[in-house]
């Protein structure tokens, strides 16, 4: 009897053991090591010293350069998230109105960016956005601009490319919220006297908020921690937190400082995500029930 009870109580643990090991080994341990590393001393001549210090954090928190870095990263992520919401909501609504056959095709198109290697996709964008690239040629020949727009090595370019690759996450999140929406609700609002715009604003949109929120969290997090796109499209000129961490690790070889910045980035993202989550959930708590 006791044996059976024991087996029953330990079963969930045993069953989740493989994924637990994977999680601990590949996520928890490296993160803990990074955290430990961030409290080490770095000396130019002798490298990393196993002496406890908070100097790395003090340096990050007192230097205006890092504030600028974090602010730029935050604004970039916020911009990408906002554009993803603005494009994602109508795009998902249009997708939902399509015939099932077309829906499948367009889903593949929308998820396409995720199926291509980040390097290939980003280099492709580099060609597109170049000074003499197709986008600039088109803009010039249409007379929309006087001289080529600087997309490469600029924030504009980074935001465009990040939006392209992160939009699928937003659409999938809104799509799942839309599937839960009772189709008759919009009809009910219309028959009660609300026009199409009022119906959308007062009835449909609030019910899509859980999807928009989870999409925004994913997009924001991925944008803030994106490395390849800012590195290739932004280059040296548009430095964000992730590229700064990379530089500390591989150029300055100041691993402890890099680790400290990485930990700060983690904390900042978690704070933003939790904060916005609380705010939106309180505002739309009935929809989340």
């Amino acid at each position: 009897m006791a044996d059976a009870a024991l087996r029953q109580s330990s079963a969930p643990w045993l069953l989740s053991l493989p994924s637990l090991l994977l999680f601990v080994g590949l996520l928890a341990v490296p993160m803990a090591l990074t955290a430990v590393l961030s409290f080490h001393v770095f000396e130019g001549m002798r490298g990393i010293q196993p002496t406890f210090t908070i100097a790395n954090y003090v340096q990050v928190l007192t230097d205006g350069y890092y504030y600028e870095l974090f602010l730029r990263t935050g604004l970039m992520s916020l911009g990408v998230t906002a554009i993803c919401v603005l494009i994602g909501v109508p795009e998902t609504l249009i997708l939902a109105k399509m015939r099932p056959a077309l829906q499948g095709t367009f889903f593949v198109v929308i998820l396409g960016p995720l199926l291509i290697s980040v390097v290939v996709r980003t280099l492709g964008w580099q060609i597109l956005l170049g000074r003499q690239g197709p986008v600039n040629s088109a803009l010039l020949s249409l007379g929309l601009v006087e001289e080529p727009v600087r997309f490469l090595y600029s924030m504009t370019g980074v935001v465009i490319v990040l939006t392209h690759v992160l939009l699928p996450f937003m659409i999938v999140a809104i799509w799942s919220a839309l599937q839960k929406l009772d189709g008759q609700v919009a009809h009910a609002a219309r028959s009660l006297g609300a026009g199409p715009i009022t119906t959308f604003r007062r009835v449909v949109l609030p019910q899509l908020m859980p999807g928009i929120l989870s999409g925004a969290i994913i997009v924001f997090t991925l944008a803030a921690s994106a490395f390849a796109t800012p590195a290739i499209i932004g280059g040296r000129r548009v430095k964000v937190v992730t590229t700064a961490i990379y530089d500390e690790f591989l150029t300055s070889l100041n691993w402890p400082l890099g680790a400290a910045i990485a930990i700060m980035l983690l904390i900042a993202i978690v704070a933003v995500v939790l904060g916005s989550n609380r705010l939106v959930e309180r505002r739309f708590k009935q929809v989340f029930a």
Binding site: D182, V185, H187, A188, R202, P206, Q207, Q286, V287
Partner: peptide
């Protein structure tokens, strides 16, 4: 049929 109440 589903009542279509506004949940929010």
């Amino acid at each position: 049929q589903s009542y279509a109440l506004f949940p929010h």
